Amino acid sequence: MGTAHITAARRTLAEAVGRDMPEDRLLDAARAAVAELARPGRLVELVTELASGAGDPAAHARYSYRHVLGFRKLLLIDGGHRHRLRAHLWQPEVEGTGPEDIHNHRSPLASCVVRGRLGMELYEPSPDGGITATRYRESLSEHDAHWQLTALGPARLRSLHTARYTAGSSYALPAHTLHRAWCDTSEPTVTLFLETGGGRSPHTDVFTRSDARPGAVEKEPLSEDDYLSELSMLARALGAGARAA
């Protein structure tokens, strides 16, 4: 079973994303790398190879799941503490997902929209006005890797920016940036998401305007069969999109 496309993707990431890069250079490099890997032909080849069982599908399935914020995450390349490359599958709001909660990340990130359209809003704390929300500190349980949500009390946030990203668009965000995203079309949206290892935080901040959240949310990893099935469906969808383009 060949692994040429997996090896090439690993090389692209290793050459682009260094461990001790300044954040501005890291963000630029991560955005360029994820845009390169998201090129339609290249991504189809990578996902098709992974869907055939190449690499380590059992290990990747353990880190692939439906995220608490409403989308499916499929791990494609695991660079350990240096970087992780994932495909994010977003369903339109008719499935009941809607926009994510406002949140930040443990480390700087870059993402590229492969198909569909993604909406994005950026926020900052604003004690004097803006929207009212409840702030949670999100961390991972030491024992079972479930999400732990600790309520920290009321907060106010101000909207800074709203954008729409269509297929081929990419962006990069520092870890602390408060934002939320959603599928901004009636068709499913696919993004390629690169989590870097720079400045990794032990927790993230989550702000919600909805009802109180439970103290722990179970993380249910995909089985190996389900992981490979999801990859196969993604490969077919990407291949159809590339032919239509």
Score class of each variant (00 low, 15 high):
T166A: 15
A167K: 07
A167H: 09
A167R: 08
G168W: 07
Y171W: 14
L173W: 05
P174C: 04
A175E: 13
H176E: 10
H176S: 03
T177E: 10
L178G: 04
L178I: 07
R180C: 09
A181G: 02
W182M: 04
T185Q: 08
S186C: 10
E187Y: 02
T189P: 05
L192W: 04
F193P: 12
F193N: 13
L194H: 04
L194N: 05
T196H: 03
T196M: 01
G197H: 00
G198S: 13
G198V: 09
G198L: 10
R200Q: 14
S201I: 02
P202Y: 00
H203I: 11
H203C: 14
T204F: 00
T204A: 05
T204V: 14
F207G: 04
F207K: 04
S210T: 15
P214C: 10
V217T: 14
P221A: 10
L222P: 13
L222W: 11
E224Y: 01
D225M: 02
D225E: 14
D225T: 12
D226G: 14
L228R: 14
S229C: 02
E230Y: 13
S232G: 12
S232R: 12
S232Q: 08
S232K: 04
L234E: 11
L234H: 07
A237N: 06
G239L: 13
G239W: 12
